[in-house]
Design a protein around this nucleic acid. Structure first.
Length: 258
DNA sequence: ATGGTCGTAAGACGA
């Protein structure tokens, strides 16, 4: 099974590029974030014609997540069971071939003085509660998406810049630690502990050509899935403008499981 | 290292 996660920054603007990528990479499961459209505006037809089942949890303008799968999707669930947090569409999960796949778009958090920062902490609390309540670290589980968390200094060009922000401060890193402690492995960090591999580059400041990026898109998995992971990489070509036109500011992360 | 870019949707706002 090939599984990918990709913050596409608008699924409608990026549709042709995503379909071209699906044809080339042939992933079995794709978790999309920032689709930025309502459920009824999602381009189902293109993905279904490409052979994918689709589960969507949309929202106009901001946020929105979806799962694509070659195998049938069952038991779709959305949100965190918290009225305030579920005003924003940031979580969808489904059962696919006996694996629970949770697709997340964790809040950015912004500056620590912003009210978006406590919102992020509340969101992470609720995610951890959902794992405790509904899932089993001994089961087959993948949690992936745009986590908006810089977990290790090795995962950013300039980690110090992020240390006093909602992306990389100690409190947010401690939340990531708790996900690991619960029983999730960071598959890319396990395979490539040296770091220096990024999944996001700011649109500004020529960040991508200079490789001034950060790894904030993760594929986390319980041990029974982690041990089946053969390869994992960031598909950097999808961040290139010259390749197929306007890219998202994120590149896909792709993992292959035996 | 963040004025400098995007997407959405029609002027900011979020990232």
């Amino acid at each position: 099974m090939i599984l990918a996660t990709w913050n596409v920054n608008s699924v409608r603007t990026r549709l042709d590029r995503i379909l071209d990528w699906l044809a080339r990479r042939k992933p079995d499961v794709v978790c999309l974030q920032e689709i930025k459209c309502r459920d009824d505006a999602f381009p189902y037809e293109g993905f279904e014609a490409a052979g994918y089942h689709v589960a969507v949890h949309g929202q106009p303008s901001y946020n929105g997540v979806a799962i694509l799968s070659r195998s049938p999707i069952t038991d779709v669930r959305t949100g965190l069971g918290d009225e305030l947090l579920d005003e924003q569409s940031r979580l969808i999960s489904a059962e696919i071939d006996g694996v629970r796949v949770i697709c997340v778009y964790i809040p950015n958090g912004a500056d620590l003085s912003s009210d978006k920062y406590p919102y992020k902490l509340r969101w992470l609390d609720a995610l951890e509660a959902q794992l405790e309540r509904d899932h089993d670290p001994d089961g087959r589980l993948i949690v992936c998406g745009d986590t908006n968390i810089l977990h290790r200094d090795a995962d950013a060009y300039n980690p110090y810049y992020w240390h006093n922000t909602g992306i990389g401060n100690d409190a947010v890193r401690a939340h990531f630690d708790r996900l690991i402690d619960w029983g999730l492995g960071d598959l890319l960090a396990t395979k490539h502990p040296e770091g220096g591999i990024y999944s996001w580059w700011d649109y500004r400041h020529l960040s991508f050509p200079q490789n001034h990026g950060m790894r904030i898109d993760h594929i986390l998995a319980t041990e029974s899935m982690a041990e089946r992971c053969a390869t994992i990489f960031v598909d950097r070509d999808e961040r290139k403008t010259a390749f197929l036109g306007k890219p998202s500011d994120h590149a896909p992360v792709i993992a292959q499981f035996n």
